[in-house]
Nucleic acid binder design. Structure first.
Lengths: 302, 302
DNA sequence: TTCGAAAATTTGTCCTAGACAAACTGGATG
DNA sequence: CATCCAGTTTGTCTAGGACAAATTTTCGAA
């Protein structure tokens, strides 16, 4: 019964901290201090991995590693989220009781009750309202709960998986076929979040666009090729709020070079709220923006 | 008009070759030879990135990097797949004409025609047969075409995305609720392929199991917690044929320690065909195995 | 006191270059 | 033809140094 231990690659996988960072922290801060196996290679005991995971979580919430590592163990109380500025309260004001109820079903791990409640809401509100007033605020809500540490990883996965299904099911009932504009929907590598993409797809399809969903994490080269092959009028990318904002301008820059001249580039999602305007790229921080952008496109492409 | 160039992180992202490997190849084989920017950091021109992407594709098909790098440019003709042993011809013998037709629709980028054809097949065959005789062989077919290089990345993404939708839609029509056994379905980090998971979910749900889908790429820790929280009878993992087989025993070993004693661990998919038996893990190389495993579980849990 | 610019710090990523184990290849032998 | 062994190939790990970008702190002026 050897207690399990983790090599550096396993720790990178489980914590999301790169090997470079793990070695650098050890050098700089004296934590983590893994054992060494027969080949002199790092071998992390589970407690240290657990602590690293906690630290990473708090870092994602806006804390700084130097402080966190210095804190002994009562950091558990430092769970207070920092980034969650109470700014984007747009449509869901007052309804957060309802959101809390939905979230509670997830936390009770009752998937079928959650699905049922959501399907009821969809039937009552209609797809557009359902997305804008329920799914979008709920997704934000979940993101905040996650940052605050009040949601387990697997609970977030369950939420995402079930909500994906709801949206895809709703999309499949919409008319398909050749319509205008033709929009390729995807996300860049390192951006695995798909819910924003699905919400956008549903709204755009409702507006009469032909959506070509390519899933997440397309290499930039391939996005260019796909736009060409599908003769896309628009390439729409989704960036979640968790995506590092500083990387976005560079990615959009590179991509705009790779796209055919006939394709527009749209970038939406919580990740682009604070990105500066760029030539050749349309920024759509909210779902409303996406809807009105379609109207704009129609006006200029008779 | 500066031609775009890529730093080492961008190349890692676009090619899937790690920074370590890129530096090592440069040292050993003299390729790639990136330029250096003002800070002495590597800056890869697009041609080299393109060549690297090609090399990576051929490596995934079973070729070795040393040879590939030495080959000048007529490697384009070396596209012949190697790994695709013509062994797993089980149920789809004779029907590959039909599969080719479906694949052709994807290559014409005609998503709606593909969806329509598949929905017709589903209606004709029923869900179980549809999965075993159409979806599974088609997925293998696509995997082989991908290895052979006759399918673009974005075409594979389109196939995956549309097929996911079909399966999820079919699953959502099955009865939910509390049934037995209760099965948590997911995959390990670095295993993003979801189709096998969905096929398994559909078949298991048909057999009367309660499936809890958690999506792909769950950290091992979290899989253990999820099993506990959902009081899962079974944790089922999916490994695609593309997953490095040598890593599987270690992962299963680590995971079996993390699971509650009351949960069984099942591992299925093309990735486990050549994995050696282990104590405490049920291996299910084919979908048929999964179906009969449910019957076996029922027999031992009255 | 409040604002904004400059200085100091924190932090991640990149660099070189060496070592070694695991996986694969090609024989030689039973 | 199967099996084992030696030689090669290949990826990943290690160490410590450097530096730029981001953030915090300090300081001077309004």
């Amino acid at each position: 019964m050897n207690s399990p231990s983790f090599n550096i690659a396993a720790v990178e996988r489980d914590t999301g901290l790169s090997k470079d960072v793990l070695r650098m922290w050890e050098r700089r801060y004296g934590f983590p201090v893994p054992n060494r196996d027969g080949n002199g290679e790092r071998s992390y005991p589970p407690e240290q991995v657990e602590r690293l995971r906690l630290i990473k979580r708090l870092m994602d919430a806006g804390h700084r590693p130097g402080k966190l590592i210095a804190t002994p163990a009562e950091e558990l109380s430092a769970l207070a989220p920092r980034r969650s500025a109470p700014n984007t309260v747009i449509r869901d004001a007052g309804a957060s009781g309802e959101l809390d109820e939905l979230l509670a079903l997830i936390k009770q791990h009752d998937g079928s009750a959650y699905l049922q409640a959501m399907q009821q809401l969809l039937a009552r509100q209609g797809l557009q309202q359902f997305i804008q007033d329920t799914v979008a605020p709920l997704t934000r809500h979940v993101g905040e709960a996650w940052e605050a540490g009040s949601l387990e990883v697997f609970e977030e996965h369950l939420f995402t998986e079930l909500t994906k299904r709801l949206l895809r099911q709703a999309i499949s009932t919409l008319p398909g076929g050749k319509r205008k504009p033709r929009i390729v929907l995807t996300s860049v590598p390192d951006e695995p979040h798909v819910l924003g993409l699905l919400m956008a797809e549903a709204l755009l399809a409702l507006e009469g666009a032909e959506c070509i969903p390519l899933g997440t994490q397309m290499p930039l080269f391939e996005i260019g090729r796909a736009a060409e092959a599908h003769r896309a009028d628009i390439v729409a990318l989704s960036f979640s709020a968790a995506f590092p904002q500083r990387r976005i301008p560079g990615l959009l820059q590179q991509l705009s070079v790779l796209l055919p001249a006939t394709s527009e580039l749209w970038a939406g999602g919580g990740g682009v709220t604070r990105v500066a305007k760029m030539a050749g790229v349309v920024l759509l921080p909210t779902l409303d923006d996406a809807v009105s952008a379609i109207a704009g496109w129609r006006a200029t492409h008779p």
